Amino acid sequence: MDGMHDLGGKQGFSPINKEGKRTAFKADWEIKAGSLMGQMVGQRVFNMDEYRHAIERMAPAHYLSASYFERVFTGVASLCIEKGVITPQELEQAIGEAVPLSVPSKSGRAHQGSLPDLKIGDTVRVRNLFAPGHIRMPGYVRGKVGTIVGVSPAYPYPDAAAHGLESARQVSFDVCFLASDLWEDGSDSAEVHVGLFHAYLEKVEG
């Protein structure tokens, strides 16, 4: 899903504001929104991939104008309505005004077929994948070549888990890219590490 949330590598958003040490929450409602998200995941009303995808489905103008915890609330509220926990009318009555929600989800996908034999030290290319639903592949690494430097335990495959589909768990690989390979003539000399699920990668031979 190439949504507005996929901002990595995009220009025009000004430098990152380094505020230094600050509190995690600025208001009591932010604590409640974060707690509600944790409770819903803990009670298996929805999973983390569904939650991430709900935020991705926010209207672009709403996403860009919303704070972090506004996005948390929108994702939770949208999923609670979609799961039948609360109706839109009940939510509006509780809030006292209309609440903008995420747009409906498009289809997800389970992984099919074999996976390449990969290990630390291998050179890999990120597959040129596009998905209408949830995908945890940053757009700026699509088609790029890097080196595997780490491996995680197996986790639910997000492309399927965000849509209630069954699919085998997969490890994710810590892939190291050179910034100059990602953004030619437009970056500092640096390394960029990205966690990428097994199915997103193909081995580069030779």
Rank of each mutant, 00 (worst) to 15 (best):
D2R: 13
D2H: 13
G3F: 05
G3I: 01
G3V: 07
L7P: 06
G8W: 04
G9I: 02
K10L: 14
K10A: 07
F13R: 14
S14V: 11
S14T: 12
P15A: 13
N17K: 14
K18C: 09
K18Y: 12
E19Q: 13
G20W: 10
F25H: 05
A27L: 04
K32W: 07
G34C: 11
S35Y: 12
L36N: 02
Q39F: 10
M40S: 15
M40N: 14
M40C: 15
V41M: 15
G42I: 07
V45E: 03
V45L: 11
F46E: 01
F46M: 00
M48F: 06
E50T: 06
A54T: 00
M58S: 02
M58K: 01
A61S: 03
Y63G: 08
L64C: 09
S65T: 13
A66I: 12
Y68G: 10
Y68L: 15
F69L: 06
E70R: 08
E70W: 07
R71A: 09
V72C: 06
F73Y: 14
T74Y: 11
T74H: 14
G75H: 05
V76P: 10
A77V: 13
S78T: 14
S78A: 10
L79D: 07
I81E: 11
E82T: 12
V85C: 15
T87Q: 13
P88W: 08
L91Y: 04
E92S: 15
E92Q: 15
Q93H: 08
Q93W: 01
A94W: 07
I95R: 14
A98D: 04
P100C: 00
P100M: 03
S105H: 00
S107I: 13
G108Q: 03
R109E: 12
L115I: 11
P116F: 06
P116Q: 00
D117Y: 10
L118W: 02
D122F: 12
T123S: 15
R125Y: 03
L129W: 01
G133S: 08
H134L: 07
M137P: 06
M137L: 15
M137Y: 03
R142Q: 14
K144N: 02
G146W: 03
I148Y: 09
I148D: 09
V149M: 06
V149C: 09
V149W: 03
V151W: 00
S152K: 05
S152H: 05
P153Q: 02
Y157K: 00
Y157Q: 04
D159R: 06
D159F: 06
A160N: 00
A161D: 00
A161C: 02
A162G: 03
A162M: 04
G164Y: 04
G164N: 01
L165N: 00
E166H: 12
R169H: 15
Q170E: 10
Q170I: 02
Q170K: 01
V171G: 03
V171W: 01
D174W: 13
D174P: 00
V175G: 07
A179C: 07
W183C: 12
E184D: 05
E184T: 08
E184H: 06
D185F: 01
D185S: 05
D185G: 04
G186L: 02
G186R: 06
G186H: 03
A190N: 12
A190S: 14
E191H: 13
E191S: 11
H193C: 11
H193M: 14
G195F: 06
G195Q: 09
L196K: 05
L196T: 04
L196W: 05
H198R: 08
A199N: 00
A199V: 01
E202C: 07
E202H: 07
E202K: 06
K203W: 09
E205I: 09
G206A: 11
